[in-house]
Amino acid sequence: MLNDDPALRAREETRQRVRQAVKELGYQPNRIARSLRTATSNTLGLVIPNFENPIWAVVVDGAETEADARGKTLIVASAARTPGRVQQFLDLGAHGGLDGILIATAGQTDTPPADAPVPWLLLNRRAEGSRRYLLLDDEAAAHRATTALIDLGHTRIAHLSGPAHAESAGRRTSGYRKAMADHGLAPGPILEADYSFTGGNTATDALLAAGAETTGVVVANIASASGLLVGLRAHGKHVPDDISVIAIHDHPLAGAFDPPLTTVSMPLFEMGRRAVALLLDTDPQDAIEETIPDGIELIPRASTAPPKA
């Protein structure tokens, strides 16, 4: 009766009395009872790698925006905090607590089976045997970043990649290699680092030891780039006078780095928004093999400049 269901036979006078009682008592519908009746929880889950990397805040913003527009609540959790977080969410879905799960972790063991109890979608990674994923064009972004340094006159360019187990890192390294080859240049040192401040900072020693003549670095992520900037300063290196640094992904914080960090932005908000739409608008058994084609843009700041003669 509260929903004005025309199938319910009740006089208008009775309906009015019920509405008045609801108003006076401050009654709120029981979501749990409603979910049992409709077989939905109106809740989605998103598992991200960690809360340290600032790019995930943008992805979450996009996902929550779309979820709100669809009348859904979004629950976000970190895989780094609790081992088996994806399985935890799957178990929650199996008991009616979630209507779908978005999985942004890099671990291949986090890929649900085809007969998972709730719909799911991988964010920015593929998995063997899976045909449900939404990707960013990481290769194109790394190609754009590398080309930006080449256009400034750099020829000895290193690459600080992401972790080896992350498929996105492999695509970014491919873009770096392709840009170097497209301009007839041999790739410089390629070193692995976590997508974190600590990862970039720790890799500084190895980068300087591996490429004494390096004049530019393409970093796979802004979190690791922030650590690299601090590490280079600790070694007495001036950015960009001694070495230029450019990173994949943009965030408002990049403009507050010292120096402000040149980046290649990617459609992180759109990935979150599109992921929720795909999760809700497609059959759980349908293949989703989609790459967001647009939204890659160079954001020049003070961390890049032509190399010294």
Rank of each mutant, 00 (worst) to 15 (best):
A7D: 14
E13Y: 10
R15I: 13
V18E: 10
A21N: 13
K23Y: 06
G26N: 04
N30M: 07
N30R: 10
R31G: 06
T38C: 11
T40F: 09
N42Q: 08
T43Q: 09
I48C: 06
N50S: 15
P54H: 06
A57C: 05
G62Q: 06
G62T: 07
T65W: 01
T65E: 12
E66F: 13
G71W: 05
K72M: 10
I75L: 07
A80E: 15
A80V: 04
T82W: 10
V86K: 08
F89I: 10
L90W: 00
G97S: 09
L102P: 00
I103G: 05
Q108R: 13
P113A: 15
A114V: 09
P117I: 04
W120V: 05
L121K: 08
L121M: 06
L122T: 09
L123W: 06
N124M: 13
R125M: 09
A127I: 11
G129W: 11
R132F: 11
L134M: 11
L136V: 14
D137S: 15
D137V: 10
D138P: 14
A140M: 12
A142V: 12
T147W: 08
T155A: 14
T155N: 12
R156N: 07
L160A: 05
S161W: 03
S168W: 08
G170E: 12
G170D: 13
R171N: 13
R172I: 08
G175T: 05
R177N: 14
A181Y: 07
H183S: 09
L185W: 08
A186E: 13
A186K: 15
I190G: 06
N201F: 15
T202R: 14
A203Y: 07
T204R: 02
D205G: 01
A209F: 02
A212R: 06
E213P: 00
G216M: 00
V217L: 01
V219W: 01
A220E: 02
A234I: 02
A234N: 04
G236F: 03
P240A: 12
D241N: 13
I243E: 01
A247E: 11
D250M: 09
H251Q: 05
P259R: 03
T262C: 10
T263Q: 11
T263P: 08
P267V: 06
M271H: 05
A275V: 08
V276F: 07
D281K: 12
T282K: 08
A287D: 09
I288H: 08
I292T: 13
G295P: 06
I296K: 12
P300A: 05
S303A: 09
K308Q: 11
